[in-house]
Design a binder for these strands. Structure first.
Lengths: 106, 106
DNA sequence: TAGTTATATAGCTATATTGCTATATTACGA
DNA sequence: TCGTAATATAGCAATATAGCTATATAACTA
């Protein structure tokens, strides 16, 4: 699997797409997080699982898919894994998609 | 299935991604097509199947997936189905992705 | 050390995807 | 009308995806 293949597949799922959308503004969606500031540290897996109504292992896997695609970064702190968007990778992907398919401006 | 869901899934496949890439410049890749000018009419399913080394029914399904996603248009002429890119839909999708995920410029 | 919490991994099931072959449909030409 | 060519559809098999529960691991706390 290439990085680009990981990336297109990572986006081919509603939950993961919505995760990236919500993680763009953690303050707006995850301000209830107590263990750490969601903006500074990111959002923990459990809170994401609760938001989407899926089990913790299922969310753990979604996180892993997005992390492999480099769309999010995870950092372990105490016993939480915090997730935050990788803006550089997202911008890079959007640019790659446009250029590899030669998509003209809208 | 929503249109956006059809679209993200349509791109999650190497063959279909490459189809869109090749169809950006049919003259460069499908000039051997005899039944019609590939630039004017598009590229027929059989020629696409041969290029990718897959069976005709398999290519027919890939075409259908891309057509449902609106990334290509198909037109039947005589006994061929010609495929051509829908530049408007591709640009619209790229724009939607950037704005829905709030992807910052590279 | 023992218990608790958060996460990761293993293994299972249901469904989706993607390939194939066989066959139906459509269009043309003899 | 009959045969041929291109395409579409049906049905099957192999694999991938995404959910779950059970359990292992990691980190903190009493």
């Amino acid at each position: 699997m290439t990085k680009r293949n990981d990336q297109v597949k990572a986006l081919a799922n509603d939950t993961r797409l919505e995760m990236l959308r919500l993680l763009d503004d953690p303050a707006a969606h995850f301000s209830m997080q107590e263990s750490a500031d969601p903006v500074e540290m990111g959002v923990c897996v459990q809170l994401l699982a609760e938001h989407f109504g899926v089990s913790q292992p299922t969310m753990s896997r979604h996180v892993e898919v997005l992390r492999r695609a480099e769309f999010i970064a995870t950092k372990r702190h105490q016993n939480w894994t915090y997730c935050s968007r990788n803006e550089t990778a997202l911008a890079d992907y959007a640019e790659w998609l446009k250029s590899t398919l030669n998509i003209k401006a809208a």
